[in-house]
Computed example of a mutant assay.
Amino acid sequence: MRSDASQVYRRYLSAVMLHGHASARACGLGATDLYALNILQLSGAMTPGELAERTGLTTGPTTRLIDRLEQAGYVRRVPDAGDRRKIIVEPVGKPLELDRVMTPARQKIGEILGGCTPEQLDALFDYFTRAAQAYQEAAEQLRDDTAGH
């Protein structure tokens, strides 16, 4: 393994996080707002409680987060079809402003990926899939550990 592997990886993660923060700011959102919107777009509609659990926020901050996303036109609250007392938060269409802000980075990443062989892409996306699961499990473990204290 490369001697600078940890530094290269940490630099990559920092750049991704920095871009996420800058993109969120450019759209008038906070980084957690963008993270929550991403969760909703990837996982689909969910209750505010489920969103709170996924973001690690408590109820009050989650309500304010949903308010901001709703006011910006990214999500809407709808009654749950199975239980009208419940509210579901669902993403609304494509976030055009966010797409506009992220397009330059997406194009550059597309160019990088376009230069990869099919085998390199298979390895890269296998890594993304397995690393995402590892990070998810580690986050859940940290949440469980801190909930016990």
Results as ranks from 00 to 15, higher is better:
Ala52Asn: 02
Lys94His: 10
Asp122Gly: 09
Arg84Val: 09
Ile88Pro: 01
Ala105Arg: 15
Leu57Cys: 07
Gly93Lys: 09
Thr63Leu: 15
Leu121Ser: 04
Lys86Gln: 13
Met46Ala: 13
Thr62Ile: 08
Val78Asp: 09
Gly115Ile: 00
Ile87Asp: 10
Asp80Glu: 13
Glu53Ala: 15
Gly56Val: 05
Glu90Val: 01
Arg85Met: 10
Asp122His: 15
Gly60Lys: 14
Gly60His: 14
Arg100Asn: 03
Ile112Ser: 10
Gly60Ala: 15
Leu113Lys: 05
Pro91Met: 06
Asp80Cys: 10
Asp122Arg: 15
Lys108Cys: 02
Met102Thr: 11
Pro61Lys: 00
Pro79Tyr: 01
Lys86Arg: 15
Arg84Gln: 09
Pro61Ala: 05
Thr59Ala: 08
Thr59Arg: 12
Leu69Val: 01
Gln107Arg: 15
Gly110Pro: 05
Arg85Glu: 08
Glu90Asp: 06
Thr103Asn: 05
Pro91His: 12
Leu96Asn: 05
Asp99Ser: 13
Ala123Gly: 07
Ile66Phe: 10
Val78His: 00
Ala81Gly: 00
Asp122Pro: 01
Gly114Ser: 02
Arg100Gly: 01
Glu50Thr: 01
Pro104Arg: 08
Arg54Met: 12
Val78Arg: 11
Gln120Tyr: 05
Ala72Lys: 12
Ala123Pro: 03
Gly114Arg: 05
Ala123Thr: 07
Ile66Ala: 01
Glu97Lys: 12
Gly60Leu: 13
Leu65Trp: 03
Pro95Glu: 04
Thr63Ile: 14
Ile66Tyr: 04
Gln71His: 14
Thr62Asp: 10
Ile109Thr: 13
Pro91Gly: 08
Val78Pro: 02
Pro48Phe: 12
Arg77Pro: 07
Glu97Arg: 14
Arg85Cys: 00
Leu96Val: 14
Gln71Pro: 03
Pro91Asn: 00
Gln120Met: 06
Thr103Leu: 14
Glu70Asp: 14
